[in-house]
Computed example of a mutant assay.
Amino acid sequence: MATIKRRYVFFADLRGSTALYETLGNAHATSVVTDVIRNLARRVPECGGQLVKTLGDGLMAVFPRAINAVTAAVQMQDDLERQPAPNSDSERPTPRVQLQIAISAGEVVEVGGDCFGDAVNVAARLLDHAGDSESLIGREVYDELPWEVRSRFRHLDKVHLRGRVEPAEVFLLARSKGSDTEVTHLESPSATHDALGVLLSWRGQPHRFLRDRMPVLLGRGAACGMKVEDARVSRTHARIDLMGGALQLTDLSINGTFVRFAGDDEVLSLRRGSCTLHGQGELGLGGSPNDASVATLRFSLIAHNDPPPPPFPPASAPWHHR
């Protein structure tokens, strides 16, 4: 018999398991991934939730309250961070897996131990936007948290979720006190922003992303607003967020994101790091823009009261000094 209840839907997914299989082999990697998911799943009943199912290298759960779901997210991230990397017979270093978590709220239909409904779909789509070791929640989840827990979250403005017309407000959980993602006051969604958006170009094709389409994901995945098909580009490679009046670029990839600003010879390397974008420049996905074989995007910020940005210069006329 089907029952309808308001629940907090929780999805967790391991990133990096593909590299683990390549390094450890199928049997060893399967054992490692299974053990990791089993250990993480124990946190669900401990935090008052119900494990719905495991999904290979991920899991789905539901919780009765927002604070229960967020507590489970924090504990799972901490558990995985403390876990040592598995041993390998190979001389290659064993890659560490990272955890992505997404939580949404709403009515779900429970049938035969499984759950269905819009909240389930939203959580699954929200997971597409989470980077390594990131936990994302929707506005309804955030609104039902105690104020001291809310201060651990950073507002990411509105996100366009795949298959949905209306954008969703999303918040990112800071990993620990003192981390560079921690905030004490959240921005108001209606605050005035200096940056209107960004113009990105790859292979001569420009794409305009205004702030109502932020954040924008860069990568090979279907959820990415800026799709870049290249072997060195991760499924979700990088993200551009609107933070106050600035655009922030965050690397989410395996091979790194590299930034060169117009008129500057220096290349900034981001490996799970962030930087503020300004003016114009180039983004190398998976390698330096100095390497002609790397997938390199041109970017140009769009600001209030700016005239329309000039067309991107041809690849034969790069911005940096020779």
Rank of each mutant, 00 (worst) to 15 (best):
A2I: 09
I4S: 12
R6S: 12
R6A: 11
R7N: 08
D13G: 03
A19D: 12
A19K: 12
L20N: 05
T23I: 09
T23E: 11
L24V: 02
A27M: 08
A29P: 04
T30P: 01
S31F: 11
V33N: 00
A41T: 01
R42P: 02
V44L: 01
E46R: 13
E46K: 14
C47E: 12
G49D: 09
K53S: 07
K53N: 11
K53P: 02
T54Y: 01
L55C: 10
L59Q: 01
L59T: 04
P64E: 08
R65K: 15
A66E: 04
I67K: 07
N68P: 01
N68F: 05
V70W: 01
T71H: 10
T71W: 01
V74P: 00
Q75Y: 05
D79Y: 13
D79C: 00
L80F: 03
A85D: 08
N87C: 05
S90H: 03
E91Y: 08
Q98N: 14
I101Q: 00
I103T: 02
A105L: 02
E107N: 12
E110M: 13
G112R: 12
F116K: 02
V120W: 03
N121T: 02
N121R: 07
A123V: 07
A123N: 05
L126H: 02
L126V: 01
A130S: 13
L136I: 02
L136S: 06
I137Y: 01
G138H: 02
G138N: 08
Y142K: 11
L145H: 04
P146G: 08
E148A: 07
S151G: 06
F153Q: 00
L161Y: 04
R162A: 13
R162S: 13
G163K: 11
V165E: 15
E166G: 00
E169Y: 06
V170T: 15
V170D: 03
L172W: 09
A174R: 00
S176V: 08
K177W: 11
S179D: 15
T184N: 10
H185A: 14
E187N: 12
P189K: 03
A191V: 11
T192K: 13
H193T: 13
H193A: 15
D194S: 13
L196E: 14
V198W: 09
L199Y: 11
L200W: 10
W202R: 12
W202G: 15
F209M: 08
V216K: 03
L217N: 00
A223P: 04
C224T: 13
M226H: 11
V228Q: 09
I240Y: 04
M243W: 05
A246Y: 05
L247C: 08
T250M: 07
L252N: 07
S253W: 04
V259P: 05
V259Q: 06
V259I: 15
E266H: 14
V267N: 00
V267I: 13
S269F: 03
L270P: 04
R272D: 10
G273Q: 15
S274M: 12
G281Q: 06
L283R: 04
G287T: 04
N290C: 08
T296N: 03
T296L: 03
F299H: 04
I302E: 11
A303D: 14
D306T: 01
P309E: 04
F312C: 09
P313D: 09
P318Q: 08
R322A: 13
R322C: 10
